[in-house]
Design a protein around this nucleic acid. Structure first.
Length: 742
DNA sequence: GAATACTGTCATATG
DNA sequence: GTCATATGACAGTAT
C-alpha cells in the first residue's frame, strides 16, 4: 500500500498535472467509476460523504439547528458540504478541461505529506490495510476518523495544511500557474497560496498543542470560521451554506462583492463584460447560473422539467446546459439521491445565509421568496427573454398582457378599434391586471372589506343572508334573534352562562336558534380566528361571570369551588374579564344592576318594564339601565347599518362589473357585426364589379364605371343608371338618417 | 408615529 | 309623544 501511495502521489497525479498543463484532459470519472476504492476515496472521500447521504443525514437528523459550534457533526457537516460541492464541481460544464486536473493537483501534496499528516485521505486507509501510516498525533487523528470523513474530505479538498517541506518550489509554481490558468478550480485558493498554507499550518499546530479536547473544539471552530467567513476559492467572506455553488457565481466577478449583491455579480459579466479577463468557461458558468436562476424564476416545476428532461428532450437539448452549473449539480444530485430536497434553493436566500444550518422544513417556504426576489431581479433586467423560449417565459408573464385583443386586432380597422375599449374586453375575459392585483390584495387583506366582486359565493351569500335577516329585523322576532347574536358577540363574557342563556332564549320573544346566529356573527363581524378560539374559554368564564345578576345569585355565582382554580389563574381570568367587559358592563357592575346587560338590551319593552318593576331601583340605576339599553340597541343598529352599507357597496360593485361585462359583450358583438358587414360589403362589391364588367352596350362595348352604375331596386332587381343619378340617390339616402336624428 | 380599519357612541331622522 | 330602528359623524382603539 505504501507503494501504491507513492505511486499515486508522485507518479500518477503529477503526471496528471503535466497532462493538464499541455491541455490533455484526464477524465476523473474513469477513476471514480473504477473499482479502486483507495483512489476513489482519496479523491472524493469516503462514500459516506461523496453520496450526499451523509450530508443530508446531517441536515435531516440534526436538523441543522441542533449542531453545536463545537460539535463534531458540525465540523463534518461543513467540511462535507464544501467538499461535496467541490466534487460536484467536477462535473460542471467545462470548456477548458483542466479544472479537474487541477483539483487533483492538490491531492498530490496531500498524498505526499500523508505520512506526516494522518488526516489525509490515505490515513483513512489505516483501518483497511494502510498500517504504515504513522504520525506524531496519530492517536488524535484516529479518533477523527471515527467522526466521519468530513475532516478528511476537507483536507482532501483544499485546506489541509501540507508540510511545507514536501512542496518544492516547482510544485508551488506549478500550482500557481494552474491557478492562473483556471480560476475556477473547484479547490480553495488558499491551496495555492503558500503563505496562507503556512499560516493555516501554524494555526493548526497551535490548536493541536492545546490538547485533545481543544483540538476538537479548535478544529470545529476553525472549520466553522473557514466555512463561514472565507470562501474557499475566492477568499470572499462567505457563509458556509453556500460552499461552492454561490461561490462559483460570485467568483465570476473577482472584484470583492458581498453576497447580497448577488444580482450585480450575476449581471455584471453580461452587462459589462470587460471588467476582468474572464475566460470562456467562466462566462459560460455565469451564463448558466443566470439561466439556472431564471429557470427557477419561471417556476420550480419548470426547472425540474428542464433538469430532469431526458437528453433527447428538446428543452433539454436547448436549455439543459444549466445542469452543468454547480447549482444544477445540486439539483440533479439531490433528485438522484434524495429526491426532492429543496435545500438547493437555499443558495439564493440571502436571509438564510446568517443561519448556520437550516432545516429542510424551513427551507421549503423560503424557496418561493427566493424565487420571487429573483423574479424581480431578472424581471427588471429583462434577461429572461434572452435565454428562454416564449413558452417558458409565458408561464411567468401570461397574465401581463391580455391575449384577447390580438385576434380581434387583426379584424378591426382603426375606426373599430376606436370604439372598443380593450379594457372592457380584458375585464370580461378576466385578464385585467388591475383586477388581478385586486384579487391578490383580497387574499392578502384581512379586513374583509375588500370590495372585489370575486368574493367567494359562500361569504357573499352569507353576508346577504345575514343582510336579509337584519334588514327584516324590523319585526320584533328577528330583532330578538339579532340581539341574541350580537349580545353574544359584543357583550363577550357577559351574562351568557348556560342558565341565563336558556333563560334569555326562553324569555325572548321569537327567539331563534342560537348557534346559527353565532355562526352568522362569526362571518359578519370579521372576528379573527384567534379571538374565536377564545370563545370556549369565554363560555367557561361566562358561567362564573354573572356579576350583575341578583345579589343572591351573584353571591352564589361568584364563589367558585375553592379547588377549582388556582389563585393566579383566577386573577388572570378576572383581568381578562375586565378587559372583555364593555364600559356599560363596568358601570352596571359598579351600580349593582341586578340583571344582565343582555336582558336590559334585548328584552322587549313590556318585559323590560316588568323587569324594572320587579326591583327597587334608584333613579341613577334606572337612568343607567335606560342608557345601557339605548346604547346597546344603537350599537347593534350601527353594526347592522354598517353591514348593510357594506353589502350595498358589494352589490353595487357587482352590478358595475356585470354592466362592464355586458358592455364588453356588446362591444364584441358589435365588432362581429361590423366584421360581417364589411365582409358582406366586400362580397357585394366583388359581385358588383363582376356583373358590371359583364355588361355590354348595344355595340358590345363595356360600360364605363365613371359614367354608369348599378342601382339596386327595392324589389331585388338591378338597374343600370347613369352615375349622376346614382350619386343623387346616394345623397338623398344619406340625408334621411340625419333628418331622423334631428 | 402615521395610516387605516374597526367599533362604540351620540345626535338625529324616520316609520 | 314614545319606541324602535337607521344613519351620519365623531372618537377611541387596534393593527
Amino acid at each position: 500500500m505504501l507503494s501504491l501511495k507513492k505511486y499515486l502521489t508522485e507518479g500518477l497525479l503529477q503526471f496528471t498535472i503535466l497532462l493538464s498543463l499541455i491541455g490533455v484532459r484526464v477524465d476523473v470519472d474513469t477513476y471514480l467509476t473504477s473499482q479502486l476504492p483507495p483512489l476513489r476515496e482519496i479523491i472524493l472521500g469516503p462514500s459516506s460523504a461523496y453520496t450526499q447521504t451523509q450530508f443530508h443525514n446531517l441536515r435531516n437528523t440534526l436538523d441543522g439547528y441542533g449542531i453545536h459550534p463545537k460539535s463534531i457533526d458540525l465540523d463534518n457537516y461543513f467540511t462535507a458540504r464544501r467538499l461535496l460541492s467541490q466534487v460536484r464541481a467536477l462535473d460542471r460544464f467545462q470548456v477548458p478541461t483542466t479544472e479537474v486536473n487541477a483539483w487533483l493537483v492538490h491531492r498530490d501534496p496531500e498524498g505526499s505529506v500523508s505520512g506526516s499528516q494522518p488526516n489525509s485521505g490515505l490515513a483513512l486507509e489505516s483501518s483497511s490495510g494502510l498500517q504504515d501510516v504513522t504520525g506524531p498525533d496519530n492517536g488524535v487523528r484516529e479518533s477523527e476518523t471515527e467522526q466521519g470523513f468530513g475532516e478528511d474530505l476537507e483536507d482532501l479538498g483544499a485546506v489541509a495544511p501540507p508540510v511545507s517541506g514536501d512542496l518544492t518550489k516547482e510544485d508551488i509554481d506549478l500550482i500557481d500557474i494552474l491557478w492562473r490558468q483556471d480560476i475556477d478550480l473547484g479547490a480553495g485558493r488558499e491551496v495555492f497560496d503558500y503563505s496562507h498554507r503556512q499560516k493555516e499550518q501554524d494555526v493548526e499546530k497551535e490548536l493541536r498543542d492545546g490538547g485533545e479536547q481543544d483540538t476538537w473544539a479548535g478544529e470545529g471552530a476553525e472549520a466553522l470560521a473557514r466555512n463561514l467567513l472565507v470562501d474557499g476559492e475566492t477568499g470572499e467572506s462567505f457563509p458556509a451554506q453556500f460552499p461552492a455553488d454561490i461561490s462559483s457565481i460570485t467568483e465570476a466577478v473577482p472584484s470583492e462583492s458581498e453576497p447580497p449583491a448577488l444580482q450585480n455579480n450575476l449581471l455584471s459579466p453580461l452587462l459589462t463584460g470587460t471588467e476582468s479577463p474572464f475566460d470562456l468557461e467562466q462566462q459560460w458558468q455565469d451564463l448558466m447560473s443566470i439561466m439556472e436562476m431564471q429557470a427557477m424564476e419561471v417556476n420550480t416545476s419548470a426547472s425540474e422539467i428542464l433538469y430532469n428532461a431526458p437528453p433527447g428532450d428538446p428543452l433539454s437539448t436547448n436549455y439543459s446546459l444549466a445542469p452543468n452549473t454547480p447549482i444544477n449539480q445540486n439539483v440533479s444530485l439531490h433528485q438522484a439521491s434524495l429526491g426532492g430536497c429543496s435545500q438547493d434553493f437555499l443558495l439564493f436566500s440571502p436571509e438564510v445565509e446568517s443561519l448556520p444550518v437550516a432545516s429542510s422544513s424551513t427551507l421549503l417556504p423560503l424557496a418561493p421568496s427566493n424565487s420571487t426576489s429573483l423574479n424581480s431581479t431578472f424581471g427588471s433586467t429583462n434577461l429572461t427573454g434572452l435565454f428562454f423560449p416564449p413558452q417558458l417565459n409565458g408561464t411567468a408573464n401570461d397574465t401581463a398582457g391580455p391575449e384577447l385583443p390580438d385576434p380581434l386586432g387583426g379584424l378591426l380597422d382603426e375606426a373599430m378599434l376606436d370604439e372598443i375599449s380593450l379594457m372592457d374586453l380584458a375585464i370580461e375575459e378576466g385578464f385585467n391586471p388591475v383586477q388581478a392585483s385586486q384579487l391578490e390584495e383580497e387574499f392578502d387583506s384581512d379586513s374583509g372589506l375588500s370590495l372585489d366582486s370575486s368574493h367567494s359565493p359562500s361569504s357573499l351569500s352569507s353576508s346577504e343572508g345575514s343582510s336579509s335577516s337584519s334588514s327584516s329585523s324590523s319585526s320584533s322576532s328577528s330583532s330578538a334573534s339579532s340581539s341574541a347574536s350580537s349580545s353574544f358577540s359584543e357583550e363577550g363574557a357577559v351574562g351568557y352562562s348556560s342558565d341565563s342563556e336558556t333563560l334569555d332564549l326562553e324569555e325572548a320573544e321569537g327567539a331563534v336558534g342560537y348557534q346559527p346566529e353565532y355562526s352568522k356573527f362569526c362571518r359578519m363581524s370579521y372576528q379573527d380566528p384567534a379571538q374565536l378560539s377564545c370563545l370556549p374559554y369565554l363560555e367557561h368564564v361566562g358561567h362564573n361571570h354573572t356579576y350583575n345578576m341578583a345579589p343572591s345569585a351573584l353571591d352564589s355565582a361568584d364563589l367558585p369551588p375553592p379547588s377549582a382554580l388556582k389563585k393566579g389563574s383566577k386573577e388572570k381570568q378576572a383581568d381578562f374579564l375586565d378587559k372583555q367587559m364593555s364600559r356599560d358592563e363596568h358601570r352596571a357592575r359598579a351600580m349593582k344592576i341586578p340583571f344582565t346587560n343582555d336582558k336590559i338590551i334585548n328584552l322587549p319593552v313590556e318585559e323590560f318594564n316588568e323587569l324594572l318593576s320587579k326591583y327597587q331601583l334608584s333613579e341613577a340605576q334606572l337612568s343607567l339601565i335606560r342608557d345601557i339599553r339605548r346604547r346597546g340597541k344603537n350599537k347593534m343598529a350601527a353594526q347592522n347599518c354598517r353591514k348593510r352599507k357594506l353589502d350595498t357597496i358589494l352589490n353595487l360593485e357587482r352590478d358595475v362589473e356585470d354592466l362592464q361585462r355586458d358592455k364588453a359583450r356588446l362591444l364584441r358583438e358589435k365588432v362581429e357585426f361590423l366584421r360581417s358587414l364589411r365582409q358582406m360589403k366586400q362580397k357585394v362589391q366583388s359581385l358588383y364589379q363582376e356583373v358590371f364588367g359583364r355588361l355590354r352596350d348595344e355595340n358590345g362595348r363595356p360600360y364605363s364605371p365613371s359614367q354608369y352604375a348599378l342601382q339596386y331596386a327595392g324589389d331585388g332587381s338591378v338597374l343600370l343608371i347613369p352615375r349622376t343619378m346614382a350619386d343623387q340617390q346616394a345623397r338623398r339616402q344619406e340625408r334621411k338618417p340625419k333628418d331622423r336624428r334631428k
